[in-house]
Design a binder for these strands. Structure first.
Lengths: 230, 230
DNA sequence: GGTGTAATGTATACATTGTACACATTACAC
DNA sequence: GTGTAATGTGTACAATGTATACATTACACC
């Protein structure tokens, strides 16, 4: 069984206690130290468990051991906090994709490598959606005013966002002669749409009844068809 | 320009006034008459403007001219109200699809007709998403405990839901010999995923910047590719 | 090293929300 | 005509987001 590596989330994971009880963090100093990070971490944990609606500002400050209004020194309002969580989620997704890409074996066949890269993007995308539905839901479903599509905070370790990682996969396919340059934009939209739609339908749509193994099998078939459809 | 026909919504459309002001409906009778419908209509109107989060229970009762707690005689809680709106949205979508199907011209070519039907489903789906983003967002994004996928309240005039209408289109394609029976389930998921994903990405994802004419062109191309990919 | 100032956290307060509980009104079956 | 179930109201409460005023402290500057 594969386990996700969410480097953003590891720090605060052990700060949760039993049901409903919230840790009272007593700090000696008046200043918190890194409240922004503490708030964001707590918010991410809440988002993991219950999606956007679970990210309630007062609960976040409670978990950080700080008064409710302290949050306003770091986030304009709850919406801004949600946006930050959204970008963290996008980043975690990008890291997942990067990891999957790095797992590709070596080969001399350029076309083979390009295809493997595209498949890696799709596979990681679907796996992330299933493993972290709360975060996945927030990655794109938060009304984000500033276009954080290419914001560094939304990127993975390579500095590329999930969307850009798909783009690089397509570039490799173009280099390998599998698709034409004119078709690139459309191929991007098509591939993204199919995988994204499948993920969404599985999480909150009529495909909710699929179990994970079924989902993975169908997901792979879907990626196959997308690859051929490009 | 095409305009949607939302028969569910026409009644209460004219009940809205200027910004923020809410009509005070004074009724002579103690009983409302059809409060369930009034509440649902008001909720749908709010959902049209601001999605699920705009459906606030107290505002709904205000618009119906009734005390907040009156709603609890007809809906167990806010969640139940949201589910009802979700089903109404699914129904409106199904009607859109039916209308588009009925617009198909006559032909002797069975395969041609089957293809036109599939395209009609996809076209109507995307048009509805663009024309009624608030409702579209609620059609599938509400955590609906009871499987309302084949609930009559979610269906169109034909008694079929949007999902089932896609199914019938695929059946016609099977009859025409365009796809095999074994491939049906997957084809259903694939077609639905691609169109649904495109819609979602346009409404709340990285494709938000697309304008409507671009969206329609790409949407048609996407439907083309799906058709071939089946 | 002392001090002023900006940054950061707190206290108090308020409007709004969902909803529980007791009560009022009325349609309708008998 | 009357009793009963259905439907709407009044009051109340805890929780939330956030505005405003205040307290504490890190740090730049002399």
């Amino acid at each position: 069984m594969y386990t996700l590596h969410l480097q953003l989330l590891t720090l605060s994971t052990n700060m949760n206690m039993a049901n409903k009880t919230t840790i009272q963090i007593k700090r000696s100093t008046y200043r918190h130290g890194d409240l922004y990070r503490a708030l964001l971490d707590a918010a991410v944990q809440l988002a993991r468990k219950g999606g956007a609606e679970a990210v309630v500002l007062r609960e976040v400050t409670r978990q950080a051991g700080v008064s409710p209004n302290a949050a306003y020194r770091h986030f304009a309002d709850r919406h801004a906090l949600l946006q930050a969580v959204s970008m963290a989620a996008q980043s975690a997704l990008a890291v997942e994709i990067e990891n999957e890409i790095n797992r590709i074996g070596k080969s001399d066949d350029q076309l083979e490598l390009a295809r493997a890269r595209l498949r890696a993007v799709g596979t990681a995308y679907l796996r992330f959606a299933l493993a972290e539905p709360g975060l996945f839901g927030m990655a794109f479903s938060v009304p984000n005013d500033l276009s954080n599509a290419d914001n560094p905070a939304s990127a993975g370790e390579s500095g590329l966002t999930a969307y850009q990682l798909l783009g690089t996969a397509l570039d490799k396919l173009i280099e390998a002669g599998a698709i034409t340059q004119e078709r690139r934009q459309f191929a991007e939209i098509f591939a993204w749409s199919a995988v994204h739609g499948f993920a969404k339908l599985m999480l909150e749509g009529p495909l909710r009844s699929l179990d994970k193994t079924q989902a993975e099998v169908i997901g792979q078939r879907l990626i196959d068809v997308v690859e051929r459809g490009l």
